[in-house]
Amino acid sequence: MSGLARIARRGRPRPNGLTIFGVVTLGCLLFLGVFGPWLPLGDPSRIAAGPRLDAPSAQFLFGTDELGRNFLPRVVQGIRSTFLLSAVAVAITAVIGTLLGMAAGYLGRHTDQIVARGADILFAFPALVAGLLVAAIMGPGQASAITVISIATLPLFIRVVRSVTLGVAGRGFVTAAEVAGASTLRVMLVHLLPNVMGAVIVQLTYALSIGMIIESGLSFLGLGVQPPNASLGSLLRQGSAYLTIAPWMVLSSGVVLSLAIMSVNLVGDAVRDALEPLKGRPLT
């Protein structure tokens, strides 16, 4: 067993074409999202920068919208807000979910019952229903988008971290640390956390893509990012009204959104394969 693992670790898997495509696409989108405001693409909120609903041209690569705004910088702004919102939400969720999952798996008993049942309840909630509920309570906006993404992705982290923790907590080194007089917090931070990090990182990428879907869904319904700011979801909604006369709005934002989610998933698969080298690869 350990021998097999050692052999498998020696040879790093060669990245395949899909992985390279995913990494390159994600890299480009992240670059646009991070540096977009400083790139010479034009002002996303300047009205009447050109004719209204103008088709893509050399001057306006993605055309213009019904207010004559240049659509390319709007899509770039959409990438930025979609990525940023879901990344912030997923990062917060990962920290909370990892702590709760470790506590549930390690402390067991009542803590486990409460946390695991809580995760089940959250898991049973459709994200859209939760979104409507949260938006009704908190009002539409970025804060409610973050809350909804957290509600939807928290059980993913809790479940995975809890099950990995259960396996790790039964091993000798945890008992040895307890015998050595280590506190519960120390066992969790020094021994459990590094051992569950692999699972957390894999889950992180999947949660990010789910977060992006939820964010665009909420913004499409008008519950997420509010005008004049753009997100990929709100651009889709904006463009859907002019689908027959100006299809470039829906096309550009839709294609970019699909690419974003697909590339995150492809990178997630690659990360999983790298961290669990024995799964899905021939042993030879």
Binding site: G172, E178, A180
Partner: peptide, 29 residues
């Protein structure tokens, strides 16, 4: 436990933390 007890486990590969170097684990013990 700290002052009086010591345990040796059946399987050394699960009794050592795979994420820590031996030096750090021994130091913790």
């Amino acid at each position: 436990r700290h002052d009086k007890l010591g345990f040796v486990f059946q399987n050394p590969t699960t009794a050592l933390d795979p994420t820590l170097r031996i030096g750090r684990q021994v130091a913790l013990a």
